[in-house]
Amino acid sequence: MIRSLIVLIILLLGSSALSYFFIGYSRAGVQYISKHREMRKSIRGGSVYHYGGYGQKGFRGGK
């Protein structure tokens, strides 16, 4: 019984912590900029950074 109570508390606290710290969500702002800056640095000279725009994501009408 105590084990079940502990599991229950862990689950509730765990989900609260994951929600509070936004675990698994995309980061926008400073983190995004520095990450993408590094990505662009690794692209060889003469090419351009390719955004995920038309033609990359795939859309049902275009398949």
Binding site: Y32, R40, K41, Y49, H50, Y51, G52, R60, G61
Partner: peptide, 21 residues
Amino acid sequence: EIEASPEPVESFEVTGDFWDE
């Protein structure tokens, strides 16, 4: 010219599509 910029302008990017079939 944004794709040629070595420095990201944006803070976040979202892509997607709308369709009707």
